[in-house]
């Protein structure tokens, strides 16, 4: 259990309030028409929405892991955080080399990288 306070208040309640507010912003960002705002800063509405969603999703992710899952502020938080981060290497490999490979990777790669090149 948490042995600390956030702004002098119970950390679980504060985390809960924070998550609710961030989720409301998330839903509002999708519901609102951001076409004009996006155009003013040189982006499309979809790009701006994605930026907002990622910018809100990351702190939400950290808030749940750090406070609700006790990865911060407990005696064993450090080693358990390292344990939780262990798959990060594989996650980065998967995101980079599968998720973000060039769309034409299967046809655009050098011949020696493609299936069927066995000689």
């Amino acid at each position: 259990m948490a042995h600390y306070k956030i702004l002098g208040k119970d950390p679980y309640w504060m985390n809960f309030y924070g998550l609710m507010i961030l989720t409301l912003i998330e839903v509002a960002a999708v519901g609102m028409d951001l076409t004009e705002t996006a155009a003013n800063i040189g982006y499309t509405e979809k790009e701006l929405t994605l930026f907002i969603l990622v910018a809100i999703g990351l702190p939400k992710f950290i808030m749940i892991a750090a406070i609700f899952m006790h990865l911060w502020g407990d005696e064993d938080s450090k080693i358990l955080t390292l344990t939780a981060l262990f798959p990060s290497f594989f996650i980065i490999v998967m995101i980079l080399f599968i998720g973000l490979t060039h769309p034409e990777a299967t046809t655009g790669l050098p011949e020696w990288c493609r299936p069927g090149f066995y000689t």
């Binding site: 798959p87 594989f90 996650i91 998967m94 995101i95």
Partner: peptide
């Protein structure tokens, strides 16, 4: 940790 790998594979497929 193993669950993270499961969902990461699904997410990387989606992104791809």
């Amino acid at each position: 940790m193993s669950e993270m790998m499961v969902f990461t594979s699904l997410f990387s497929t989606y992104i791809r």
